[in-house]
């Protein structure tokens, strides 16, 4: 067994609010190799906070603690700001939900990719430009040269998200964290974006953490799935064995979705057992 890319042990994220302490993530542990890991949960399950904590992007007044949080052997909790900066966006990247808010509106897409590349690699402008164009081609932009000089508001949501992926992958990261990368997109577009993401991850042998609320999507896309509930991992399973899920929460999540295949009514609802949150 190879050394894991990412080790997370007993990760906790606490928010000190006026009303008291709220623990959004309560002791999450997992290891990630060069594989596709899905994190699934409903709103408030702490799935996004887990992703953010790994990158050190927990918004204040959040506080992150862990027994171990290491990327490729580098302890992320004790690492200097400089080390973190070079890791972030360099070897670890993140794709957010809505490209509208994560792309800079006053810079062209090409400029942004070049900037992302030059921030982490010593490259001349011409090299960076070639790299950016190649990257735009890799995300299946029909006319990379044109997209290069467009502003984010001039492209559609799907194209924006592909541009975002291009920007995040231009530095050849080892780990990509994708937080609901397709929830703001239409289904057919999101399948396209996922296919591109899938190919790039496979080609480059990256580790991928795919955070989503959509159990069906995650299980069809990832190798392994963590199911989170109230800040904890309640179940970890191989994606293809999802049908054999043991935890009642996972089972409930599976069943409560209406499907085209059969017509069950009323839909089974989820009875939340307070003991799941313990």
């Amino acid at each position: 067994m190879m050394k894991p890319l990412l080790e997370v042990e007993d990760l906790r994220v606490r928010f000190h609010l006026r009303t008291g302490i709220v623990e959004a993530v309560r002791g999450v542990s997992f290891q990630l190799g060069r594989e596709r890991l899905g994190i699934v949960g409903e709103s408030g399950s702490g799935k996004s906070q887990t992703g953010r904590a790994i990158l050190g992007l927990t918004p204040p007044p959040g506080e992150v603690t862990a027994k171990r949080l290491a990327f490729d052997g580098i302890d992320l909790l004790t690492a200097s700001r400089r080390t973190l900066r070079t890791l972030r966006g360099g070897r670890v990247s993140m794709v957010m939900q809505d490209p509208k808010y994560s792309l800079n509106p006053v810079m062209t897409i090409g400029e942004q990719i070049i900037e992302a590349y030059q921030a982490h690699a010593k490259a001349s402008r011409a090299e960076a430009r070639d790299k950016a164009l190649a990257m735009l081609e890799a995300v299946k932009m029909r006319d990379p040269g044109r997209v290069f000089s467009l502003y984010p508001h001039e492209v559609s949501g799907g194209m924006g998200q592909r541009a975002m992926i291009a920007m995040m992958l231009v530095t050849d990261p080892d780990l990509l964290i994708a937080d609901e990368p397709t929830s703001a997109l239409d289904v057919t577009v999101s399948m396209e974006v996922l296919r591109i993401l899938d190919e790039l991850v496979a080609e480059r042998g990256m580790g991928l953490i795919f955070i989503s609320h959509d159990l069906k999507l995650v299980s069809s896309f990832c190798d392994r799935v963590l199911v989170m509930y109230a800040g904890r991992v309640v179940e970890e399973l191989e994606a293809r064995n999802l049908r054999e899920a043991k935890h009642p929460y996972t089972q409930g999540l599976m069943r409560c979705l209406p499907t085209l295949a059969d017509d069950i009514r009323p839909l089974p609802t989820l009875n939340r057992d307070p003991s799941w949150a313990l």
Partner: peptide, 9 residues
């Protein structure tokens, strides 16, 4: 993203 309820009652 609230996990557990506030502590003080």
């Amino acid at each position: 993203m609230a996990g557990s309820p506030a502590l003080s009652q």
